[in-house]
Design a protein around this nucleic acid. Structure first.
Ligand code: MN
Ligand code: MN
Ligand code: MN
Ligand code: MN
Lengths: 218, 218
DNA sequence: ATTTATTTTTAGACAAGACTAAAAATTTTA
DNA sequence: TAAAATTTTTAGTCTTGTCTAAAAATAAAT
């Protein structure tokens, strides 16, 4: 069993490894954890002692097999709880993250197994992120950013890159939801802004928006 | 917001106040918290600083109004989560306490409000203990220990005093459940053991058992 | 009313996690 | 390649919550 702090560090390293494949830097981790670099160095040493990460001074940090397993388990719990909050308790998708940050640290194998079953083994969380199964396997999805598509192309919205309440509320306000068909009617070459068709109605969106929406390609 | 430790101390003091109406002793609290008296003294001082308890050296400790409110809120959350685990996730009544000990510390007003609604505002937890409402009011129940009844008397089993997994499993094994009618057929004056009728079948139980079963009297 | 036993508090230490300030290593720039 | 800027680590301190050992206060027993 690992502490809440240790679990949060492992999760952060997991998420940063995509952007830092050669090793997650101390500063990147400090930034992600909203803490100081010196605190990160301290924690990295502890995680390294426990064989959860591979660490060489000044070389950044990488998850070990067991470190990755723990991180994935925490992510699984986080996303299952998010589904619970939205599907069962009527939370909006922009309200669940904070609470899930707490719930993800509850320790009980039976709890998570039964919760998964109660929710009917969901494959994705309310933001379209994949929920790893009990073995730690993620569903791989062919997704692409809306910003990468061109005039005339279309696809189903299946996820958000930024899942901050602000962005999610913008989407709600403009009736953009997961599962919706988006058709690109126009794309301005100067600023990459787009005119899109959503369920019959038209909407003008900036590149900031289209760069944070995932579209199913397949 | 209070720490997990602080909440657990407040809850323990609340539960001990019934047995120690003039002030909960340091040793009683140390015992309940499975810690040392010196640690209790330290914590009591911190709680006193925060006006959660009234404390005078060597005089024991009592909850303040805000301390009691916090304790009751934690108990409310504990019991609601126990209902969730049994009613929704299929846990047995002897499996829920440990997990609820963790879940009771999750901080989210909306979560507990929506959970309460999702569970249809339950009045009692799986062990028959009353769930305080959102104002902190407990349902008062006229209950008496089975051990206090005599031959010929009967009543509905509405709660357990000891809710350890061992006792609960004994009850399961002997088909004693909440809501069940119990009729006292015989009572041995020497050792207070009883012969009871349960749904048609007869069972011999010791005083240890009858002293841990609550019967509705009304 | 003393002595004895019990309870409670203090004193001092420790571990986890975090912080600031300063030193050391690395990377970038000139 | 040497100087400058950046990143990372170390050193020392702090808070929370715990512990042991010893001192002080209270309660119980002669
Ligand atoms: Mn989230
Ligand atoms: Mn999510
Ligand atoms: Mn319980
Ligand atoms: Mn209970």
């Amino acid at each position: 069993m690992f502490s809440l702090s240790e679990e949060n560090y492992l999760k952060a390293i997991f998420h940063l490894e995509r952007a830092y494949p050669t090793g997650v830097s101390t500063n990147a981790l400090a930034d992600e954890m909203s803490t100081k670099a010196s605190s990160v160095t301290d924690m990295i040493k502890r995680l390294s002692e426990k064989k959860l990460v591979a660490y060489k001074k000044y070389q950044g940090v990488k998850l070990s097999k067991s470190g990755r397993e723990t991180a994935v388990e925490v992510i699984r719990k986080h996303r299952l709880w998010e589904v619970f909050l939205v599907d069962k308790l009527g939370f909006a998708w922009d309200e669940v993250h904070e609470v899930a940050e707490q719930l993800e640290h509850i320790k009980s194998d039976k709890l998570i197994k039964e919760l998964d079953r109660f929710l009917d083994f969901p494959k994705r969380d309310p933001h379209g992120d994949p929920i790893p199964d009990s073995e730690g396997n993620f569903a791989i999805s062919n997704k692409v950013l809306l910003a990468e598509l061109n005039k005339g192309e279309s696809g189903i919205c299946i996820g958000v890159k930024d899942s901050s309440p602000e962005f999610l509320q913008y989407l709600d306000k403009n009736n953009i939801a997961l599962g919706q068909l988006i058709v690109i009617l126009e794309k301005e070459s100067f600023d990459q802004s787009m005119l899109i068709n959503l369920n019959g109605s038209e909407l003008k969106i900036s590149n900031v928006i289209s760069s944070n929406l995932y579209i199913k390609t397949s």
